[in-house]
């Protein structure tokens, strides 16, 4: 059984904030310098709150990560796994900009970062 694969529009390019996150059904992270967009689930699996978009992003040994804002667990932006507890994962979404329209598609199992 495969999920329906369609692109869902969630916002506009102007909704994105360089170097920080914004929330939709997913948490979207934008890195202008690297021309990269990431999309992972916004629901933090450790406390069931929709807060991942409010975390700080960065990298740990080269792997791009977001730190959950409440207790700072780190999740890979590439495949969603938690660095402190690898069996815990965020769902990852495919994400793209069609012109100025921001779209996501689920589920992606691997690299969701889009360079454009």
């Amino acid at each position: 059984m495969t999920e329906q694969q369609t692109w869902i529009t969630v916002g506009q390019r102007s909704d994105l904030i360089d170097g920080a996150g914004v929330g939709a059904q997913v948490a979207l992270f934008y890195l202008k310098k690297h021309n990269q967009l990431f999309a992972v689930g916004n629901l933090c699996p450790f406390n069931d709150l929709n807060i991942i978009a409010r975390g700080i992003i960065g990298d740990i040994k080269g792997e791009p990560v977001v730190a959950s804002p409440l207790h700072k667990e780190h999740f890979s932006l590439l495949d969603g796994h938690c660095l402190e507890q690898p069996e815990v994962r965020l769902p990852v979404w495919q994400v793209r900009l069609e012109g100025n329209v921001l779209q996501v598609m689920r589920p992606a199992t691997q690299a969701t970062s889009t360079s454009f």
């Binding site: 904030i17 170097g19 920080a20 709150l49 929709n50 807060i51 409010r54 700080i56 992003i57 409440l70």
Partner: peptide, 19 residues
Amino acid sequence: HLGLQDTNDAFLANMQKDG
């Protein structure tokens, strides 16, 4: 500076246990 701020500074308020 926005993307650098820790949880509470980022929204000028203290995040509670329920977000």
